[in-house]
Design a protein around this nucleic acid. Sequence first.
DNA 1: ACTCCTTTTTGAACGTGTTCAATCCATAGT
DNA 2: ACTATGGATTGAACACGTTCAAAAAGGAGT
Lengths: 218, 218
Amino acid sequence: MAVKSAATRELLVTTALRMFREQGYEKTTMRGIAAAAGVSTGNTYYYFESKDDLVHELYKSLQDEHRARALPQLRDGINLGEQLRTILQTGVDVMGPYHDFGSNFLQVAIKPSSKVSPFGDEAAVARGKSIALFKQAVTVSRPQPPYAIREDLPELLWLGYMAVTLFWVYDRSPNQRRTRALINNAAPLAARLVILSRLPVVRKIVEDVVHLVRSAKQ
Amino acid sequence: MAVKSAATRELLVTTALRMFREQGYEKTTMRGIAAAAGVSTGNTYYYFESKDDLVHELYKSLQDEHRARALPQLRDGINLGEQLRTILQTGVDVMGPYHDFGSNFLQVAIKPSSKVSPFGDEAAVARGKSIALFKQAVTVSRPQPPYAIREDLPELLWLGYMAVTLFWVYDRSPNQRRTRALINNAAPLAARLVILSRLPVVRKIVEDVVHLVRSAKQ
DNA sequence: ACTCCTTTTTGAACGTGTTCAATCCATAGT
DNA sequence: ACTATGGATTGAACACGTTCAAAAAGGAGT
């Protein structure tokens, strides 16, 4: 039965993701998903704890696609600003079809109890995957970022990515033009800031910021 | 009838805020609020569009209390770091009783359609009030922040405040000890950064950041 | 073929936020 | 006093997410 069971689960995920994409979060009801998949309402709850759990599936799916699209573009020798631009623009591309869904997505993500919460324990794996993307960018970029912050940089950049995502949610311009413009400006700026962290004065501040973020992580 | 109508509204707000504080967001039901206030369920919807609308009332109430408590403490001649510490710590104090409620609060706030959304149009008034607090801090602090950024500083500080609030939501330590520690570290750091923005190299970056934030606002 | 146990599936039921036609009630105008 | 008007109030009804006891379907051992 294991194979058929897995098929039911897969069918539910596919159906749910399609309906999320086509109708948004609210109009996609648990009854609707079940009906479209040809199973009973209650059966969905055998495979998924809640509606939010299905959003978690969407989250993981997007994450995988983001990684698959961005990673091959992170080539050796390109400067950090360009690498960042690639990661962020790819992220916006992948999330694009779900933009109307965006706020609901955040809404689910924001609750600490949620599996999707980017800061929670449950999503640690997914977060790690995302940070790994930035780690790769840092590793292959030339010139190399200063050694002093190389270790903490991926996490800091990821935090910036979260901020951009927040901006994206509220961006109502067609095709999220404004978010793309923001990325084009912010990516080289961040890269320039990284370079500047070599200067003694700036370095002191950067060290303090890094220390702050570290201690905030407990 | 106008006076009695206002009384009903006030009674509902008071009841709802008390129940939010005592039982949290989910356990406080619209039926429960109506019953505790001695009116019918439907009547609540005559005065408030939705449950979230009642959260908006809570938001405004907290905002007013924050302002009332923080403003008198912003005295002339104190340095910016201390002023910031005062504002942020007072904010945590005011929100304290609602900490369990915090994530639900954010959840309501995050949706662009929501009245409470800190970035939305509806909450522009409330946001303005909050930013005014930082404007006051900037105005009375000695030494004065560099002229070049004085105008944009309140808004930037407010953004930092939003970040701290986000941290607060996820802070499970008793009495939000970790958030308070974060504030004690971050406030002087921010102040030091402001001072540093006088240096030509840093100033260039700061200008770019300010420009970025400005253009992001449309 | 039959039994026993586990995995999977069902659909009714509960409590929720919200809507709405109907009703009540206070007041102004006559 | 009577009535018309519009604000205030009601409570049943709807669709939703979720739960759960019960039924069905599978599979293993004999």
